[in-house]
Design a protein around this nucleic acid. Structure first.
Lengths: 134, 134
DNA sequence: CTATCAGGAGGCTATTATGGCTTTAGATTC
DNA sequence: GAATCTAAAGCCATAATAGCCTCCTGATAG
């Protein structure tokens, strides 16, 4: 799994941004959410890089959603903020990535992969719209 | 959220233990799963304390499931291993626990709580049986 | 009873996550 | 163009996690 505070902060920001009509700067976001600004800035940058947010420099700049809430899945948010998709275990997503040569690890791989699939579809289907819309 | 390696290791161990007919010692488990033994021991101890596993000391001792796989939810596993239930944000589970006095944080609390509920039910319904049984 | 096996508990170190700070670059306003 | 605003990007410090090692305690086998 390996889900950290970065994902928490990302979700909080997205909820707040989804109801904003114009870009919010990181200063405002960090104050409103009581989140450390310098850390939040990096998270917002990651979200912008992956296309979830759009960033605007200069006066009246800030961050705004660049997709519809229904097109922003929790899986995508976590993937870009954490740097990789949340994995139950490193070898769970793809058989080839299993780093172990031990037979017993590979014997449980099908179960891990099954679990990973269930979590992935849940996080994929869970979008920002499910949270902020009625 | 804040899910760490401890949960990963717990799940791996439970999958392996669910197909074992007798207790497995932490030495064996760590070798089979390529997981550091000393860290794994603490995780297994936590699972034993919460009643998911039962521990047996002495020769032929080790750890074994103390519940049916269908009665072991991922939420319970994570809760006991992480020390607390996985929370989207500290104030998400209960309104009273919201540490902030800022109005805007409380304005998004309903959304956080909604998200938390969706995640909780998913993890509650997802049991070891869903992973290891057909 | 004794030797051995395995869990329980604690301290210590390395790695990673978190957060702070400064500089640079791009955009806006006047 | 100058001043100002804000994101982008880097480096550094601290805090939390992951992992290692040792000793202690309880249980079993002989």
């Amino acid at each position: 799994m390996l889900i950290t505070r970065a994902s928490e902060y990302a979700i909080l920001s997205l909820i707040l941004l989804s109801s904003a009509s114009e870009p919010m700067d990181s200063e405002t976001l960090s104050r409103e959410l009581s989140i450390p600004k310098s850390f939040l800035a990096k998270i917002l940058q990651a979200l912008a890089k992956s296309g979830v947010l759009k960033s605007y420099k200069g006066a009246k700049g800030g961050f705004a959603l660049d997709k519809m809430p229904k097109d922003i899945s929790m899986l995508a948010v976590m993937s870009c903020v954490e740097g990789k998709a949340p994995a139950v275990f490193e070898c769970a997503p793809a058989e080839k990535s299993c780093p172990s040569e031990q037979a017993s690890v590979c014997s449980i791989w099908p179960f891990l992969h099954k679990l990973q699939g269930k979590i992935d579809s849940f996080l994929e289907e869970l979008t920002l719209a499910d949270i902020v819309e009625e």
